[in-house]
Amino acid sequence: MKDRAGWRLYLPLGLMLLFLLLPFYWMVLTSLKTRNELLNTPNPWWVFHPSINSFISLLTQTQYPQWFLNTLFVSVGATVLSIVVSFCAAFAIVRLKFRGARVLSTAIFFSYVVPPAILFIPLAAVLVKLHWFDKLWALIPIYATFLVPFCTWLLIGFLRSIPRELEEAALVDGASWPRIMIKVILPLSVPGLISATIFSFTLSWNEYLYALIYMFSSANKTISVGLTTELMRGDVFQWGQLMAGSLLGTLPVVLVYFFFVEYYVAGMSGALKD
């Protein structure tokens, strides 16, 4: 049922969305402006001589398509890994309640307080020992370090909201635990999994520091690293291309969100219910 929405809804909502969209409007303008127009314009809020040169040169003269694929690969990989690992852990903690489950769940939560911006040096030492340096796929387990705590927490919340009667019935019927996990709990967890997926995907998509520090080859750059390392030239930035790259890197994700946003809300809602 649709609400009758009056100005009391649309006015504050409009202002809020305006604020949230402002930098993106700016990105669009900048990506369409020539350097000259960017600096000399009678009205900064408009573009008088739009040109898509920035998009063309971004796609043809830089390795942007490669960076895009790298980002996609790492984000999908890190998301899948984190979701699988987190679901298993959450299932074990909530449904199995094995010895030490409570300790583990507390530990996972606390592990989130470790600030990544600082620990990259000690972490690098570990990566060197494992020979994971400058390997694109190594970012997958690295990203898992900050995804697993959050996803596990989210899924713990979600799994708790699934009624216990379901698995009790299955147990009585003689189903084994692994079977219950896959056949009973997993299908019911889909909304929770979707919201965890969206969350993980976004964080991986935007990660910067680890991708910058641990990858050396140009072929291993992600979108944000590639853009900032190759288009911010000393004191001359390629503004048009930077903003074009940023838009092209953001829009696909938003498009995905447009279709999944309801599941995301539903999933989070399930996780928060209890």
């Binding site: 930098p23 944000s224 930077l242 890197g249 953001t250 938003v254």
Partner: peptide, 12 residues
Amino acid sequence: IMLLPWVAPTVL
């Protein structure tokens, strides 16, 4: 739309 700020790469 609301999600955009959260999705865009922070540096950019």
